[in-house]
Design a protein around this nucleic acid. Structure first.
Lengths: 208, 208
DNA sequence: TGGTCTTTGTGAATGCGTACTCAATCACTA
DNA sequence: TAGTGATTGAGTACGCATTCACAAAGACCA
């Protein structure tokens, strides 16, 4: 199974595995079986084993998986071991919330540039990053930035995306409710929060 | 096909359809064919037709779908026509960002209660909603609230969820990076932003 | 060192969702 | 009112993902 095509759904689950592993490591657990792991994630054991087997044999029969080693291996699979650098555009409430999110560093990722259009914000420092003028987005080019996070209003999203791509970014996390048009080689993940909430109502019991 | 089980993936797409329809309605379009609609959403026509056909026949052959009527119908399917009320717990940056999000009202949804633990925020009004003390979360009980949005730090999430459920909420949108334990009848959707970003790196070209 | 127990890794089967195709349907026109 | 053109609705086939079940493999103990 080692060199086959990997299901997209498997990739989606890998970060979840990382998070659970972080917890186990913090608890001091050295190894974990697929059974225990599945329980923690509310998934089923065979799926976890299959997911991991796509990438090789990580566990030892009779014992389970080495938590620290597995964490490192998943990190490597996802390409997080090289600590990719991300640029955040749009320092509104959402952008600010993202910067404070503890999760990013845990996964091995760094937001190393911030852009905004508000003159009051430009020049400020958030954490240890200086907020730059969004008009100077092109200066990103030489800075080896591989990811972009867009938290600007919908009408500006496409323009920002174009500029990020021109600066060499090839992965975009988009929070604007807008379908970005991007070249083939750029991967976009859009999170539309309102959409998720809208979906939620479908599952409610009394639909009167 | 009318009374069969509906794929979960279809439900996930319905809000997207609503958003696209909103755009078309704003443009003044009365009808739209599955072909045009698919182009707009970067999907393929048969899928859209099949998705809609699960719920009945909404289109007219030779013409397409009536934009306004379809919008209303999807809204009804999702249970958004009764404008469900949502309570937001946690007025941090993320919570504030959500309140400003223009999407909610468009879908037919209302955040009608806000709770926080910060004494400085309690008593304030955001929009026209007064911020209440999170310790008084139990007062929600009689207020006919069907949804809860959790934007508090991970350690507090489970406690808040329990209280929301006790108050009669049966759908929760959870932004805390924590797996909530909830009764069978409660639906939880968890959005973990860091996880999405972590996934993104997998698709980047040069994994050195 | 041999046996037992636990747990992995994976081939096979099942089930679900997507894509295709075409007949039925409706609007429009003369 | 009959013919034409466009577009839907759904039956069918395909492909992907999940689940199952079991053989292979390592750890532990006597």
């Amino acid at each position: 199974m080692r060199y086959h095509k990997i299901p997209d759904e498997t990739i989606k689950r890998l970060p979840r595995y990382m998070r659970a592993l972080l917890l186990l490591i913090k608890e001091g657990r050295e190894t974990v079986s697929s059974g225990k792991f599945a329980e923690l994630l509310r998934a089923n054991p065979p799926q976890i084993r299959k997911d991991l087997s796509y990438f090789g044999a990580f566990g030892t029969p009779g014992v389970g998986y080495d938590t620290k080693r597995l964490f490192g291996q998943i990190q490597a699979i996802l390409g997080l071991d090289s600590t990719p650098k991300a640029a955040l555009v749009g320092l509104g409430n959402l952008g600010t919330a993202l910067l404070k999110y503890p999760g990013f560093k845990a996964y091995g990722m760094h937001i190393t540039a911030i852009f905004d259009s508000n003159p009051e914000k430009i020049g400020e420092t958030v954490g240890d990053i200086k907020v730059e003028n969004v008009l100077e987005l092109s200066t990103l080019k030489g800075r080896n930035m591989s990811l972009g996070i867009i938290t600007v209003p919908a009408p500006a999203a496409q323009e920002i995306a174009d500029q990020l791509i021109a600066a060499g970014v090839n992965g975009i996390l988009n929070f604007a409710p807008y379908y970005l048009k991007v070249p083939e080689h750029v991967k976009v993940i859009t999170i539309d929060i309102a959409m998720e909430l809208a979906r939620l109502t479908y599952y409610l019991p009394t639909k009167t």
